[in-house]
Design a protein around this nucleic acid. Structure first.
Lengths: 235, 235
DNA sequence: CACTAGGGAGTCGTTCAACAATCCTTCAAG
DNA sequence: CTTGAAGGATTGTTGAACGACTCCCTAGTG
């Protein structure tokens, strides 16, 4: 029997149990498709046939459509009336738009950081280490994943649920663009050291300088990605 | 050219228009419910019965559920598995979180404004005028509406689709809190002059000062709203 | 040859009815 | 007062059906 005084215990277990079985079929289907899209298994532009997926996933059309709705609102699928759902093809305007919002959120989060408990930077250290490790192995997709996690953990420092969600949507959509890049090395490699530099500034408590560095960082990243996209235009 | 006297002609056009606006039935249902929720017709905490709404709206359960999904993603409804959808009850933490993101977006948008074409401020002038007019009439809900439009138009100056969408979700969710306030006058009245002051700074091209003013503005608004919510706690 | 109208196949949008799974209430037993 | 077990009510999911729409192909016209 646990100590009744330890209020946190029940909460923890309750949350675990809930997150276990507390997902509907549609959400599980969405989770499955989400991975496929983000990993780039489904190239941008492909149509997701209801008939076909119903057959493969063994769910009803209605359930599948609910999953589509979920992903559509995350920006991971686009829905064209009477034509079906497609993996979106991000154009240059989308990229610029994405980075615009990204700079707004990430830089502002960093700029407002104060009295930061070093313990909270722990996940960032882990991400940087994971990124460096993956780069050493030449596993560029893994570098990309570590980078995404780094930035997700970065905005998490704000401690705001809605900022986390907004950033999550943003980064997921961005991965769509990243997965379309032919040569990931040139794109991903600089991230390793820049993330580390950013983290160092945070550790030193230099919030303002970190925000400025992040601003430049994101501008450079945007330019690189735009150039990479321009090289292989699908249209 | 069809005969104008033919009664069937109008119907055909009506149908065309309906399908031309490319809105599905679910979206129209969502639009209807959205208004009900935002106007406060449905008090926070009420459950939206599928059975009941299917009866009233004359749509199928599946279509209704798609509308629910739409509104859930906007934060205007919450969905609890096997229990149904509810009008959310925002607590103080939610308000703080909402204002946190709001400051991030609105202030950053204002701070980054440059070389602003005065023509683009036109909608803001209209909103300020509408707010002042409504205040003169004592129509506080209208003041609230004008205020929301003002801030929506404010972030629109950034010219970013995704920022617009994020702000729209944010403001819609905030209206939920506003609609629960008993005495709207004390809350809404200051907005009229502050919005005007903010606009004046923008006209003068004082982006940095405008951002600072907006920051204070939002802090005050948050404090007022928190106080108002504390006065009538449902829990 | 270019162009437009028309038909048909393939999908999506929506509805309906039914059953399974889950929650809430009630109430009796300890 | 707490616990546990029916029972009813509501949601979750399924499968089928039909209308509506898009796309592509073909035939006819100039």
């Amino acid at each position: 029997m646990p100590d009744p005084a330890d209020a946190g215990w029940l909460r923890t277990v309750a949350d675990e149990v809930r997150s276990f079985d507390r997902s509907s079929t549609a959400e599980r289907v969405a989770e499955l498709l989400r991975h496929r899209v983000i990993e780039g298994d489904l190239p941008p532009g492909t149509r997701l046939s209801e008939e076909q997926l119903v057959e493969v996933l063994r769910v009803s059309r209605n359930t599948l459509r609910e999953a589509f709705r979920l992903l559509t609102h995350e920006g991971l699928l686009v829905h064209r009336l009477h034509r079906g759902v497609f993996v979106p093809e991000l154009d240059e305007d989308d990229l610029v738009d994405l980075y615009r919002l990204r700079r707004t959120i990430e830089c502002d989060v960093v700029r407002r950081l104060e009295r930061l408990d070093p313990v909270r930077l722990r996940p960032l250290h882990d991400d940087v280490a994971a990124g460096a490790d993956a780069a050493r192995r030449g596993d560029w997709p893994a570098v990309g994943t570590a980078n995404m996690r780094f930035h997700q953990h970065l905005v998490a420092l704000a401690g705001s649920r809605r900022i986390d969600e907004t950033a999550a949507r943003l980064l997921a959509e961005l991965r769509l663009a990243f997965s379309a890049v032919a040569e990931p090395r040139r794109l991903y490699e600089p991230y390793v050291s820049r993330n580390r530099g950013l983290l160092d500034l945070l550790v030193a408590g230099e919030g303002e300088r970190a925000a400025k560095e992040l601003e430049d960082y994101l501008h450079d990243s945007e330019a690189e990605l735009l150039a990479a996209i321009r090289d292989r235009p699908g249209s």
